[in-house]
Design a protein around this nucleic acid. Structure first.
Lengths: 213, 213, 213, 213
DNA sequence: CATGAATGAGGGTTCATTCAT
DNA sequence: TATGAATGAACCCTCATTCAT
């Protein structure tokens, strides 16, 4: 199941898209503030700019709303990775660029990241499966890049671990900002993590990024 | 505010302790299964072995229960770090031992970790403050060890980052097990993370741990 | 008020008739299956072959639909009695023929009968009045026939009672089929009821009907 | 499933009985007036004399309430038949007495009878099965009496038919009172139906009942 | 101290009806 | 005439919390 398959009684496809965007935007705003459970469907409807009845024309259940939000977040991340990864000429430089770009995206979406981690238990099995699938896909993209760009090659497992580390370090910036933001700007955080990553990968750090000189 | 300050109408302090232990145990079992929100106070009372009325003699609100659970979890982690860290003779070997020990604890408490991440938004401000305080304390312990054991010294910031990384990598083992457990045993995971950490810290890996040879 | 007086915003009378026939047909199908209350206006519109908006061009409220259905059912029964009753030469034979014919109609309309009995409470006062009026009219037709065909005459009350009995026995075949259809075919049921009726009326049963020999 | 098996979260069995009696009484009052569907659970609670929350301590769903009502009605009828039927000395006189007694009961419970017929479609399969089962049982009691008391014996089918007729004629007095009560008192109605029944059974009417002389 | 019956605010969802296009 | 998106009152049910026993 994907977010696009959520049933709606509205026939006009473009309208569905438009309204769902409204719903997603409103929901993120609300979920950030109060969490999924404490947000009522009425609030979602109101913040979306229409009535409760209308909300339920575009969504079957409250959980659908959460699913829509997940879908939107993953879509954003996927898009970002997709456009930044240089599949044709994988390189350490590209890996670094991808990390920077990914961290910057997370910085923009800080709260969304928090939502993702907090509400997974609220999903039913089918939707949870989809979400995990999506996560795996994203991590897979990083992993692939790591393997192909590493000069001496890496085992599947090592690449998996590093990819997960990078992925989570990105999210960390979102969900542990109370711990990190006092000491780091985004740029510093990124630079440091990249720095340690390069060392971990035993790669001579080059001046590839604008952050190092 | 600390968990011990939660008000109870019962005078007998030991009884309070005993009952709260029952509550915590029961709650963790239930929260693991269905999450905090979908668990009812009635269920908590029943699983704890007494009536709903009695539950409310030892706790003022449902949130208190969550707070009690958080307190118990932090206590466990704190205790573990406390007993493993060798304050008198900090060393890389000790750091590795601490990491191993911490990861092993997380492995035992996998679900508890999930609970922590999922329900923070449910906490009210005062309790949330306490929880973050506690986290900072735990990360601080790691940070301190890292700084003191590093041969050439580290900046405050670098130590903070590394400590956070380690802390989160531990939790990762709990909340991303669907991604990691297929490829790694706990031992492999620990070994790999330690391996990369050592490289990141530019430390010649020694056979200090039972996991390396 | 009669079903024909239900207001419609459409001017074209023939179109109104046509659309209402569609509505009635669709509604009966749906009411049979799920009852009036559990059938939604949207479903009625869809099953009728047009949009919800269109439905409301031909009907003012959901209750109007029910009223339309009642009207159609009564019309059918009325028509049947009308064409079978021999007003000019009332006779026991004709009474029997009418009963047979009526029972056969009920057999065809089993579910419609059920609908009638189950949803009367849903009607508002004005429509309920109409429905009861209609019932009285139908029973009156039977009653008239009974009085005129009885050799020795009957009191008003006795005829009323017998007419009601016959009327209800017909409906019984519809709404108690779970009890009756196991033991009787329609023919057997009719024959038996007629048989006992004749005895009750102290009439020597003749071979008037195809069912007796 | 029987009404007694409806789950309740209340442990005190006697209290459950008491509260359910209140619910049944209140519900009958309301269902009579507005029908099952137009009666809200809040109204039931209020009329029962307690809060909506309390209602749901004694009943799981609104349908349970309907089921409780059915159960109560059947219980009454069953009890009446049970105490009136003379199993040891079945006789025409006893049959007549039973009919009189049954009709009188129906007269007392007129509205309840209406409820029964109108809301069956609202029952889910399991409860519907129970209800039909109960009906069969009641009709079966009448049938048995008819067979055993008839001087020359009757076929199974004939007894079934007559029993159903009697049963439905009783109910008729309840649900067609708009048609019958103008012309008959209960006593007259009973007398007439018994009169025709005796003729139908070819039994010389005796002065067995107080209604004939 | 323990019990569990009672409470009622509030939540998710439905659906008859309207009205601009 | 026909459409279908929009509306919001109202429904059923849950569950944290209280309090008399």
């Amino acid at each position: 199941m994907t977010p696009h398959q959520i049933q709606s009684s509205i026939k006009d496809f473009e309208l569905v898209e438009k309204r769902r965007k409204q719903i997603i935007k409103a929901s993120i705003r609300l979920f950030k503030e109060k969490g999924f459970h404490k947000t009522t469907t009425r609030e979602i409807a109101k913040e979306s700019g229409f009535s409760i009845g209308t909300l339920y024309e575009y969504v079957r259940t409250k959980e659908d709303v959460l699913f829509l939000v997940y879908g939107a977040i993953y879509h954003k991340v996927h898009e970002r990775l997709e456009t930044t990864i240089d599949y044709k000429h994988p390189s350490i430089e590209n890996l670094i660029a991808v990390i920077e770009s990914y961290f910057r995206l997370i910085d923009d979406m800080q709260e969304e990241v928090v939502i993702m981690y907090q509400e997974m238990k609220s999903l039913q099995e089918t939707t949870k499966t989809y979400v995990l699938e999506k996560e795996r896909e994203l991590v897979g993209m990083l992993k692939q890049l790591i393997r192909t760009c590493h000069p001496t090659g890496m085992t599947e497992e090592d690449a998996e671990l590093i990819a997960n580390n990078i992925f989570v370090q990105g999210q960390m910036w979102g969900f542990r900002r109370w711990a990190l933001h006092k000491q780091f700007t985004l740029e510093e955080y990124t630079a440091s993590q990249v720095h340690y990553l390069m060392r971990a990968l035993s790669i001579e750090q080059v001046d590839s990024s604008s952050f190092f000189k």
